[in-house]
Nucleic acid binder design. Structure first.
Length: 173
DNA sequence: GGGACGATGTAT
DNA sequence: TACATCGTCCCT
């Protein structure tokens, strides 16, 4: 397996969200193929956490692209994101099992539970020895639509920033 | 100090 | 459709 180069992440967020489909997410011996993503494009995006300002939590999104942004949502579930710089990130929503995944990984919370990702992985560069992204296999057909669970974000809720591999059974919802 | 609110998932 | 459960944000 070959790691994605730093240049992969230094592109417009929606382009990265689309390009992440089919790539492999690796944590130790566990590997999943990304089949669903969502772009959170920056501080002007009312669905993006950075729209609340640059805080301790959102700081990693303002750092270099290609890092991990992990946060706790609803007091129970972790969400895993890939940063793209300038306050933006891509949420990884679902994986297709490739190796050593014994639990389903369709959905942001299930995905982190299946791999064992926690807030301890926040801020890590994604070419590290334990947690990294590898070249996978391109998606067959790509669909896009509105993001999930961001109805509070007014006109930003309807924007088609969610991408998935069409007809893949491991896509959430 | 305290209250409202989640980028969710499961049970009812 | 109800609700578990807690960090973050802002003081409405």
């Amino acid at each position: 397996m070959r790691a994605l180069p730093p240049s992969f992440y230094a592109r417009p967020t929606l382009q990265v969200a689309r390009a992440l489909l089919g790539q492999h997410l690796v944590l130790g011996e566990k590997v999943g193929r990304i089949v669903e993503t969502e772009g959170y494009v920056g501080p002007h995006d009312l669905a993006c956490h950075s729209s609340k300002g640059r805080t301790a939590r959102t700081e990693v999104m303002f750092g270099p692209p290609g890092r991990s942004y992990v946060f706790l949502v609803y007091g129970m579930h972790f969400c895993f994101n890939v940063t793209t710089g300038k306050g933006a990130a891509v949420l990884i929503r679902a994986l297709e099992p490739v190796a050593n995944l014994s639990r389903r990984a369709d959905g942001p919370g299930r995905l982190t539970a299946a791999l064992g990702i926690t807030v301890a992985h926040n801020g890590l560069a994604l070419n590290g020895p334990e947690l990294w992204l590898a070249e996978g296999t391109p998606p067959s057909r790509v669909a896009r639509g509105p993001r999930i669970g961001v109805d509070y974000a007014r006109e930003w809720a309807a924007k088609p920033y969610r991408y998935w591999e069409r007809d893949n059974p491991h896509v959430s919802g």
